[in-house]
């Protein structure tokens, strides 16, 4: 049943959001802390686990794959509802602050990726042992 996969996906999102919201309250932050990321972890665990096979294989899996495939159309809709006019109205300060933050962050991607890939062979061996 397709709806089983969709229901699993929904349950992951709601559970993740609840935890993210609770983390926000615990840290005294007015934001959901990583709710979506936690939900993704749940789905990764479920799709890698034997127990949830009936919810992730066959028709149920295509229920999840459908929403995964709808991702780009949803992102296009998301782009179309951004407050672009306000960003343009922000003037030079907003423009410079935004552009500079992006340029510096782009430049850091290869630097930090290297930090990750250096010891990664050792790490994966450790995980293999565990």
């Amino acid at each position: 049943m397709i709806v089983y996969g969709v229901a699993l996906l929904s349950a992951c999102l709601i559970l993740g959001m609840l935890i993210g919201e609770a983390l926000g309250v615990a840290l005294n932050v007015e934001a959901n802390v990583g709710g979506v990321g936690i939900a993704m972890l749940f789905l990764v665990f479920a799709s890698n686990s034997e127990k949830f096979k009936s919810l992730t294989e066959g028709a149920a899996g295509s229920g999840i794959n459908f929403w995964s495939a709808m991702y780009i159309p949803i992102v296009v809709a998301m782009a179309a509802r951004q407050n672009v006019a306000a960003a343009v109205d922000g003037g030079m300060l907003a423009l410079l602050a935004g552009v500079a933050a992006v340029v510096v962050s782009f430049a850091l991607v290869p630097v930090l990726s290297k930090i990750g890939s250096g010891p990664s062979t050792e790490e994966s061996e450790e995980q293999g042992a565990v």
Binding site: C12, M40, L43, I64, N65, I74
Partner: peptide, 16 residues
């Protein structure tokens, strides 16, 4: 369609 709810739902689905 492009709101936070659908966006998050589809993002989580990509983790499959």
């Amino acid at each position: 369609m492009g709101g936070g709810m659908m966006r998050d739902f589809a993002i989580v689905a990509t983790a499959f």
